[in-house]
């Protein structure tokens, strides 16, 4: 009687792998997405958070080839587009500058100009709303007998201010979203 060979764990594992079907192109793409998307996002995050010192962003992004390159660049672009927010002007402008490192023929100066125009109009309207509510709060306080240079009504956490702010910002947010969409599909 032939003696059964005792297989090592490695041999068993290799046999199992051999029996497995090859990955489909879709699965390969997904695997690459899982591996390379975070690289693009991490690069964008490090750039936005000023972690990079003396790092050429373009060189950093050109480390990859073919499909991997496309995944990294798309992830980088999408991360920076998401960072563009109405009430974070500095961060948003830095994000737009970061996108320029992708070396795409696109009028980024125009986008920056548009962002600045929207942001400035929003800030002016917000300031007016704040001032209006602060004045009305001060009037109420005066009516109660409370006044003076030490007194600053807590307008920012006031429910009326929050409601007015949310209503006021909606059209500005839409304009910012359109701006982001213009860049989001550049790759």
């Amino acid at each position: 009687m032939e003696e059964e060979k005792i297989k090592s764990a490695l041999e068993i594992a290799m046999e199992k792998v051999a029996k497995m079907a090859d990955l489909t192109p879709q699965e390969i793409r997904e695997q690459k997405e899982r591996e390379y998307r975070p690289r693009g996002e991490v690069t964008a995050n490090k750039y936005l958070s000023h972690v990079y010192k003396n790092v050429d962003l373009a060189v950093e992004l050109n480390k990859y080839q073919g499909e991997e390159d496309e995944i990294v660049r798309k992830a980088f672009l999408s991360f920076l587009c998401r960072a563009i927010q109405l009430d974070e002007a500095d961060k948003s402008l830095r994000a737009i500058e970061g996108i320029q490192a992708l070396d795409i023929a696109f009028d980024f100066d125009r986008v920056k100009g548009e962002f600045e125009e929207i942001s400035s109009a929003f800030n002016q309207e917000r300031e007016k709303t704040y001032q209006k509510l602060e004045d009305s709060q001060r009037e109420i306080l005066n009516g109660l007998g409370i006044s003076g240079s030490a007194v600053r009504p807590n307008v920012k956490e006031n429910a009326s201010f929050q409601n007015e702010l949310n209503q006021m910002r909606a059209p500005y947010d839409m304009r910012i979203d359109k701006l982001k969409d213009k860049m989001l599909y550049l790759i």
Binding site: G148, A150, R152, P153, N154
Partner: peptide, 9 residues
């Protein structure tokens, strides 16, 4: 109300 350095009447 936030109170800052100054006068409270």
């Amino acid at each position: 109300i936030y109170l800052e350095e100054g006068e409270l009447q």
